[in-house]
Every structure is written in structure tokens, then in C-alpha cells.
């Protein structure tokens, strides 16, 4: 199978993830969409690795996974804390980033 198809899939997954981040309010869903985008990138890296015949892309994919795992830990902790204090998981309710 032509590896380029994997790239199309990756682009599709990334778009779905991006749309989810932008459109959904629930923090958990947004978070999952971020994961989806990260994995779309991983897929693209691995595909390019295969196309070019070197291992760089795969190594970066591992890094991404590690970062994503760390992000899940911190991110979920934040979401749970916010939910505890505000009784809501909607991202629009937390606009504290404005000064």
C-alpha cells in the first residue's frame, strides 16, 4: 500500500482533533482531541520515517509519546482540580487567563 495514504489518514485525524479542540467545551473531550492530534503527528512521523528510510521520525515519535504521557498526568490533574473548585468541566467557565 502506498505509504502516502497514511499521511492522508494522519491529516484527517489531525483535523478531527483540531476541530474537537476548537468546538467542544468539555475539558476532557478537548483533552482527548489534543491526544488525537498528537497521535496524528506520531503517525505522520512514523510514515515519513518509512518513506525516507531512516529512524529519526520513529525516535521523535517515542519522545512525543513520553511528552504526551506527562501531559496527560499534569493536564488531568489540573482538570480535576478545576472541576473540584468550580463544579464544571467546561473550558469556557475558566477564563482566568485574562488579567
Amino acid at each position: 500500500m502506498n505509504p502516502v495514504n497514511y499521511l492522508y489518514l494522519s491529516a484527517l485525524l489531525f483535523t478531527i482533533g483540531a476541530a474537537g479542540v476548537l468546538l467542544r467545551r468539555n475539558a476532557i473531550i478537548v483533552f482527548m482531541c489534543v491526544e488525537l492530534m498528537l497521535n496524528a503527528c506520531n503517525l505522520a512521523f512514523v510514515t515519513f520515517s518509512r518513506i525516507h528510510g531512516n529512524l529519526d521520525g520513529q525516535i521523535i515519535a517515542f519522545f512525543t509519546m513520553v511528552v504526551a504521557a506527562a501531559e496527560v498526568v499534569v493536564g488531568l490533574a489540573i482538570i480535576v482540580t478545576i472541576f473540584r473548585s468550580r463544579h464544571s468541566a467546561s473550558v469556557d467557565d475558566a477564563n482566568l487567563m485574562k488579567l
Partner: peptide, 14 residues
């Protein structure tokens, strides 16, 4: 522009 909504920041990032 700095309205504090995460999603609008995300839009500008995208």
C-alpha cells in the same frame, strides 16, 4: 483579544 477563553487562544494559535 485577550478574553481568557482557552478556545479562542487555540483558534489564534491554529
Amino acid at each position: 483579544l485577550q478574553n481568557g477563553y482557552v478556545r479562542s487562544y487555540a483558534v489564534s494559535m491554529f
